[in-house]
């Protein structure tokens, strides 16, 4: 029973973070039809900047409760600055080129981001645990949990809800959906597709950075965790269906719970199990759980 609670709790927390990252990746893929390999880099960047700002803020004697908006500000800065910059300067130049080239381009950006972080913040681990410890703990089935974890889950659900509302309920969302469904027709009816691309990429970057900023207080921020984020987020959206918001949510839950299950029962195989799940889903249902098959017109 205790084990089950632990697995459920850990899995949900992990899923919450994964959802934030993956939903950005799936949004960018849906609109631009490009898999942004540098997505994990943006996630790590969000974690680094948020931690850095929070640490500095505490050093100058800032109120620990204000570290929460500081974390969010870190994510916002990464999303709003790096997003448009990467899209306008690099990604834009390979629209319409072979998919291999597009992948390699975002991979290059990933490599650059990875070293940029080391250059700016060095290779030593960085911590900011105040936002985590400040909220205190509660006990569930005799096991202590941090309230911060609950906040993570809540933020993720709120954010997901807001995103679904934005896509389904607003004019802007309808424009995005129209671009996802048919670029050419959208262009023909006067939608500024190029601007939508920038906005979508920025939103995606923001999701990644937000995931990083929120997870930062629970971990030691060290170089090299960017690639795992990209691969895991890919696994999530491959399972859920590339370009589907609901798919990202379900995929994140599946991957999160599987990961927690593996960590507690078979720690040697934590990544293997996730990849196996992804491969299994792709073999049975190549378009993912929520994906649709599109036949090429001939």
């Amino acid at each position: 029973m205790r084990l089950l609670t632990t697995i459920l709790m850990d899995g949900t927390v992990f899923a919450a973070v994964l959802f934030l990252i993956s939903v950005g990746l799936t949004l960018v893929f849906g609109v631009l039809r490009i898999l942004n390999v540098s997505h994990g880099g943006l996630y790590a960047f969000g974690a680094y900047l948020a931690t850095f700002l929070a640490v500095r803020f505490l050093e100058i004697g800032g109120n620990p409760y204000l570290t929460y908006p500081i974390l969010l500000a870190g994510a916002l800065i990464v999303g709003v600055v790096a997003g448009p910059l990467i899209e306008r300067a690099f990604v834009r130049r390979v629209y319409g080129r072979a998919e291999a080239i597009q992948l390699l381009l975002t991979f290059s950006v990933f490599l650059i981001l990875d070293d940029l972080m080391k250059l700016i913040w060095g290779t030593k681990p960085m911590f900011v645990s105040e936002p985590y410890t400040l909220l205190g703990e509660f006990s569930l089935a005799g096991i202590p949990y941090s309230w911060y974890q609950v906040v993570l889950i809540a933020v993720s659900i709120l954010f997901g809800g807001a995103l679904v509302w934005a896509v389904r309920g607003t004019r802007f969302g309808k424009i995005i959906v129209s671009v996802i469904n048919d670029r050419e027709i959208s262009q023909a009816i006067g939608i500024n597709v190029s601007r939508i691309y920038t906005v979508a990429f920025t939103l995606g970057a923001l999701c990644a950075a937000l995931g990083g900023a929120l997870v930062a207080p629970t971990i030691a921020v060290v170089p090299g965790f960017a690639v795992d984020a990209t691969v895991l987020a890919f696994a999530v959206i491959a399972i859920g269906g590339m370009g589907s918001l609901e798919g990202a949510a379900l995929g994140a839950l599946i991957v999160g719970l599987l990961r927690a299950l593996a960590v507690h029962l078979l720690p040697e195989a934590d990544l293997v199990i996730i990849y196996l799940a992804m491969i299994l889903v792709l073999v049975v249902r190549p378009q993912g759980l929520f994906g649709q098959v599109v036949l090429r017109r001939i």
Partner: peptide, 20 residues
Amino acid sequence: PNEWQMTLGIIMLAIILFRP
């Protein structure tokens, strides 16, 4: 040593954009 990957990334970008 610390800018190695970045160097690769920049060269790769340059090849993709200018010398496929």
